[in-house]
């Protein structure tokens, strides 16, 4: 039976996390000797057949404007119906904000076992075992899904996008649209910035920056790398930076390719939010800062001198 991948989009445009989910689902289907299809809800502004380049055979399009905003109940009902109509028995989501809203509701409706935060393709040699992060990135668990229908959501940035150059057949799918019970009264999207959870590179600042007025150099560095900006908890709690930038155990957990920590000591609560990053760079004047133990590269020194130089060197490298 085919694998069905929920390809979510923001205002009609697909994102890296969707391409990751598509690539993951297509690879899984290949491994199981079956096919993979995608389901897209709402108005799309991109050519849906192009999703075929990530390996899916068909794109089921539920083209109804009721799905242009994410109502977990309506989304889950629509995806559940799509699963039933396509006969899929494995459903793939990205573990992003939309995935967190919808995947578990779909799983319950289908009485499917769910594993969220997957970091690798399932081991299907004996059962269906999914590797996921647990203990906030401090360990992995191999979790077997024992139900006939299975739901997996994958951690953003943990499975690489694989483009094969194919084209998918686009097939409209009619489903029943329920009556929304949730009314959206306001939407505030942060425009122009790289969303933190999707960023390949994150530049983050701590108390070592001494005050909000010094964030300019951090932003310059982030800009030179097309990176998102983040901060430690004390910085958010002091109101130097908005709370949605707070990375750590109780803030946002990120898993970029590169995490650059400026003037952050690296308390265990902060590490819990960043330890899934592929490469960590720490710049701190205190050689005893615990963050150096979790880092791949480091400079012991004054961030106020080093950061502007670093920005210059990066601009040089990029030929700007």
């Amino acid at each position: 039976m085919p694998v069905l991948i929920f390809a979510d989009h923001a205002d009609g445009h697909f994102k890296k996390s969707s391409y990751e989910a598509l690539s993951y689902g297509a690879k899984l289907a290949e491994q199981l000797g079956t096919t993979s299809d995608a389901v897209v809800l709402g108005t799309a502004k991109e050519d849906l057949s192009s999703l075929g380049q990530y390996g899916v055979r068909k794109v089921y399009h539920i083209n109804n404007a009721s799905f242009d905003t994410v109502d977990a109940q309506l989304y889950a009902a629509a995806i559940t119906e799509a699963v039933q109509k396509t006969g899929a028995d494995i459903i793939i989501f990205s573990h992003n904000q939309t995935g967190r809203a919808v995947a578990s509701v779909v799983a319950a409706k289908l009485k499917a076992g769910i594993v969220t935060g997957a970091v690798a393709l399932p081991n299907t040699s004996n059962g269906f075992v999914v590797r996921k992060t647990v203990f906030s990135g401090k360990a992995f668990a191999n979790v077997e899904i024992t139900s006939p229908i299975k739901v997996v959501s994958i951690n953003p940035n943990s499975f690489s996008v694989q483009s094969t150059g194919g084209s998918a057949e686009v097939s409209p799918l009619e489903i029943t649209v329920g009556t929304p019970k949730v009314k959206i009264t306001a939407v505030n999207k942060v425009s122009g910035e790289v969303p933190l959870t999707e960023a390949d590179i994150v530049v983050s600042g701590g108390r070592g920056l001494k005050g909000p007025e010094n964030w300019g150099m951090l932003e310059d560095l982030a800009h030179s790398l097309h990176a998102a900006t983040a901060c430690s908890r004390p910085v958010a709690d002091s109101g130097w930076r908005p709370h949605h930038e707070h990375v750590g155990q109780t803030g946002i957990q990120v898993s970029p390719n590169l995490y650059i920590a400026l003037g952050i000591s690296g308390a265990i609560q902060h590490l819990a939010g960043v330890n899934r990053s592929k490469v960590i760079v720490v710049i701190n004047k205190d050689p005893e800062a615990p963050f150096f133990k979790a880092a791949d590269y480091g400079i012991v020194g004054d961030i106020f001198e080093i950061v502007p130089k670093l920005t210059e060197e990066i601009k040089k490298l990029k030929g700007e």
Binding site: G113, I114, G137, V143, E144, K293, G301
Partner: peptide, 22 residues
């Protein structure tokens, strides 16, 4: 139950920080 944990693993230890002069 629809899932069960088969085993756990700890991530491989970091190779250690490579320090660069300031």
């Amino acid at each position: 139950s629809l899932t069960k944990i088969v085993s756990y693993e700890l991530p491989p230890a970091k190779a250690g920080v490579k320090l660069v002069a300031a």
